[in-house]
Design a protein around this nucleic acid. Structure first.
Lengths: 376, 376
DNA sequence: CCAATTTTGCAACTAAGTAGCATAATTCGA
DNA sequence: TCGAATTATGCTACTTAGTTGCAAAATTGG
């Protein structure tokens, strides 16, 4: 609620110019920015000079072949601040280092020695981040913040509140522990939530800001984005279908298509074989597929009447069965009288949770990096 | 994304001062405002002068009994702009006129001649608003905007997308129709959603901004507030339990406690009798109550794993059974292994949807009335 | 090499917030 | 009743930062 004095106005205008500059991948002239921010050229000039001094902008001198005095070109120094993203699943820790614009500069992958030992996992996760930083070729101290995607219900403090079959993870302060080891502020969220965020950012749900991302089968989870923001829910419980008893209905033992989402290559290969049989018209495979689609549709029905997402994105491995699964799920939802929600397959694939972690930390650090903005 | 020039800064500061002024019910001195907004006294003085000239503030001269020169007192002219709220249920149209601070100045109630005839309902609704304006004693042209709470799934354009058993209402452009008749911009939303908003504003859910409000029984619906904002969902479908098939499980025919939520006095009286029997320890009544609580718990379970609200508020008539119902619902949810969500009864009661409509229009008109603010 | 063109750099101006002091309007005690 | 103490006011001088506009600079093209 504080009012603005002239220096606060300058901070706001600096933020506006910096954000305008960051929108361009290529160097831009001052005139372009003036058109965008609706400030006078003089003001933009002064602010750009400051931004160059503080290192957020650099003046570049590209070849120019037009009549008239050549303009000065400026470009956004996107790698002046970097963020780290980590994903931990039951078998590996993967990491990415991204610049402030969201361009991934390096990656790392470490196979977990023991998922149940959180201490060991933290060591492996740090190693994955180190590898990513090495690959990026950037100095380590540029990494200013991070985010981690992991399984289970994760609350706003980054504590794993519930994760079935993994007692060692319960009440584990993931964000704090990993943040301390990396020496940066760290945010944490559920991997399905972050997959959804990634899909909104660069995937199959860019045009809507209220939708759900789902994985069903061997693993199961729902990520929810409402108003462009991940909806975590009380104690991170939103979309935590594993607690619903609803999964029991999915008859996992007899359901080979549930293995589409397995983290194990061998299991996915088995599921893929059933896909081949189904595509060839094999009666048993089609029967099982139909059952699977019915189960998925039933779960999506609950989503439809509670959250009513505009779009539902299927991911986590289900996308390889897109051609067979989508029409059957849509038909089954129709039979159930469910709201006609657009159901799609991911366009990002297995990378979604990690990419979503990048987006999460970029969102959380937005004001830190770019400064304040005007609402409405 | 536009930058700020000095006059934009002044607009922002005017907004800041106006909002600070509006927070006080009693007249305040300049010094108080200066402390709040962190602008110099001179600036506050100039802005207050402008606000007095434009009529948003008035200088008052209260009795003063302190040493020193008496300060000037200013008060916020809350009734310079008014809003209208309407609620339409199957039997009546109720209306309220509120000042910009949310104080209800007048009410109106018109018994519907024919709920199924939307044209007639519009006439009745306008009459209810007229009555409320008359009671308020305010000039009609001060009413600057309005909101209407109605049954069914209502989309962001204020169109009723689906309302079971009422074919005449389907695809009815409620907001546009009623807005045109009242001659003001009008917003519309589902009555359960608006009840939730009211509960967040002045009821049982003030301390949390992510929760659900529920009515189950004869009528049924769930209102969802996420991040302090009503979550409408695709085509207004969020919380539209009537479409879920889940209600079939509630065995309405044999369930007297479902009548707690009836709009008919006589039916509510019947249900109240069963409550008396249950409180007296009658076995049949307790059995039926247990069934009812189990059904409610099952529905709330779906909410728990999808949305995971921090709080669930029961309303719409269920509050009269609070003492009997709440412990049974909580226990049944525990049995289902559901997330431990705080379940409460409404503190607003039957007024909630109408009051929520007031809040909706105040929220939507916030920038219009008070001007822009700084984000983060 | 000069005209045409386009951008730049700077000086003069304006809007709006801040600082601080002399003054006005009270209460209280003698 | 009057003057001292107290507190808020009204105003002037000053600072910050955005705007306007013009002369100069740096190009291309004939």
């Amino acid at each position: 609620m504080p009012g603005l004095d002239p220096s606060a106005m300058r901070r706001l205008n600096t933020s506006v110019v910096l954000r305008a500059l960051a929108e361009h991948d290529e160097p831009v002239t001052m005139a372009t920015l003036v058109g965008q921010v609706k400030l006078s050229r003089r003001t933009v000039e002064l602010i750009l000079t400051q931004l160059c001094e503080s290192g957020w902008a650099v003046e570049v001198t590209p070849v120019h072949a037009d009549v008239g005095r050549p303009p000065r070109y400026f470009s956004f120094e996107a790698d002046r601040a970097l963020v780290a993203a980590v994903r931990v699943d039951t078998h590996a820790a993967s990491a990415a280092v991204s610049d402030i614009r969201g361009r991934v500069l390096g990656r790392g992958l470490v196979t977990l020695r023991d998922y149940s030992d959180t201490d060991q996992v933290m060591i492996d996760a740090v190693e994955a981040v180190d590898a990513a930083i090495r690959e990026s070729g950037q100095p380590r101290d540029r990494v200013r913040a991070g985010a981690v995607a992991a399984g289970g219900a994760i609350d706003e403090d980054g504590v794993v509140r519930r994760l079935i079959n993994s007692p060692g993870w319960n009440e584990f302060a993931l964000a704090r522990e990993l943040g301390a080891r990396l020496g940066i502020p760290l945010f944490a969220d559920n991997d399905a939530n972050l997959a959804a965020l990634a899909e909104h950012w660069r995937g199959a749900a860019q045009e809507t800001d209220t939708f759900a991302w789902c994985i069903f089968g061997n693993r199961a989870g729902i990520g929810i984005v409402i108003g462009g923001v991940v909806h975590r829910g009380f104690q991170g419980g939103a979309g935590e279908i594993v607690e619903a008893g609803a999964l029991d209905a999915m008859r996992m033992e007899s359901q080979p298509f549930g293995l589409l989402t397995s983290p194990l290559v061998e299991e996915r290969r088995q599921a893929a074989e059933w896909l081949v049989r189904a595509r060839a018209g094999d009666a048993e495979a089609l029967e099982l597929l139909g059952e699977f689609a019915d189960d998925v549709a039933r779960l999506l029905s609950s989503l439809a009447w509670t959250i009513a997402p505009e779009v539902i994105v299927l991911g986590g491995g289900l996308e390889v069965a897109e051609d067979l699964l989508l029409p059957r799920v849509v038909e089954a939802m129709k039979q159930l009288g469910t709201l006609r929600i657009d159901v799609r397959a991911t366009t990002i694939g297995a990378d979604a949770p990690l990419l979503g972690a990048v987006k999460l930390v970029l969102d959380r650090m937005d004001v830190e990096f770019f400064g304040p903005t005007i609402a409405a």
